[in-house]
Design a protein around this nucleic acid. Sequence first.
RNA 1: GUGGAUGUAGCUCAGUCGGUUAGAGUAGUGGUUUGUGGUACCAUUGGUCGGGGGUUCGAAUCCCCUCUUCCACCCCA
Length: 455
Amino acid sequence: MAQKPSIPKGTRDFSPIEMTRRNYIFDTVKSVFKLYGFEQIETPAMENLSTLTGKYGEEGDKLLFKILNSGDFLAKANELDLSARNSQKTTFQISEKGLRYDLTVPFARFVVQYQSEINFPFRRYQIQPVWRADRPQKGRYREFYQCDVDIIGSDSLLNEYELIQIVDKIFSKLGIGVTIKINNRKLLAGIAETIGEADRIIDITVAIDKLDKIGLEKVNEELLQKGVSMVAIEKLQPILLLSGSNDEKLNKIEKVIQASETGKKGVEEIRTIFGYLKSGLVSTSVELDLTLARGLNYYTGAIFEVKANDVQIGSITGGGRYDDLTGIFGLPDISGVGISFGADRIYDVMEQLNLFPNDQTISTKVLFVNFGKAEESYCLPLLEKLRESGIPSEIFPSDDKMKKQMNYANKKGVKYVVLAGESEISEGVVTVKNMVSGDQIKLKANLLTEYIQKG
RNA sequence: GUGGAUGUAGCUCAGUCGGUUAGAGUAGUGGUUUGUGGUACCAUUGGUCGGGGGUUCGAAUCCCCUCUUCCACCCCA
């Protein structure tokens, strides 16, 4: 076999069936976004590397796809770094662009760049692919689509509540049972402060994030290994073991961290959000999960994660509040909050649960069988009439064997096949075959459109 | 990035103590049915066994390298 063509690791092609299903997801997501007053933007696939680096933590930087400079890029590289095989230094000498890693950072850049034209608070949505040089697995791709909604330029917690509403609405429309997990970075900071390890907050949150995965003992081991003191770990235990309803957890945690101003603020924020939820307009269950940490460094307040109830896959939606993302680009004190729906994982979940509607795949509704040149010219005006009435239809391009043409129609899921040969033409009629029932009838050619519309 | 598994016709997979022209189902093509699909029957196309190198008289089968996909870790949508 000649070498088969292929595509890069972790990327995918999408067939027509997959595209109609993907569009079904995009369309429902989009319709809800619009319903809540969000406006769409797009940004380029590539950003300046300086825009991207340093925003996602050390790990994130490693996962950035970098684009080689054009021209004789090696000529401009530093000879010493080059001969020392110093990849880290050389990288930035031969590459100044990278593929976007998410939609939030490019959005922050966008906001800063067009700050004078934007009408704040700005509600934008953005549906585009992002790229990560991760090692692929099920539900993890190197190119995947995110559907982001963010509200920037407002620190009102009503925005957090609205995002929860959007999550609720979208997943109920798609038919996926989900649980929304919520936590707050201030609360996590308060915990770190309380146990006397304020500057280790990242290590601590990353470790406790694994609680339900690796268990309490392993988490403690990891904390110790990261240099968190025994005393601090002791103090942390009751927090890790918190249980009960959301309110109960909040009350308990409040007592533990009352010495920390930041922590108290976090509790208050969560209370406010749960207060909104008491109105009962959201039917998805929302859980306070103190072990929810999320890696992205820029979150400062609420953090969200959405898990599918019936399928084991990573989170299908995630997000949070960032108080100073635009600060890095020179516009400080603009708070925003947003979430990102992972279209590809949502697809995988829906496929496993068989949630895609069946009638989504119809493309052509009517196919004219081609019997030859004379018959073609009889059919063409009829075909055009159907199309003018908005009925997707086509004529087979050559007078191949009937069997072949019927087969084509059958495979494509065409509902009606129109037969117009010599005898039909002489009578001014057309034979219409219903491919589902197998029945066929003759009718006047000028009644065809009407007949199809009724069917 | 670390560790483990996988790769045979378009698709799903048989085929190991290494031995002559590598099999099945399905799809494709042609026919039974000169204007009728989805069912049936018959015939037929298609593979240098992921790629490269090595061991051997001889390799899909053993060894090394590389790539793909999958699983765990890391991290995440």
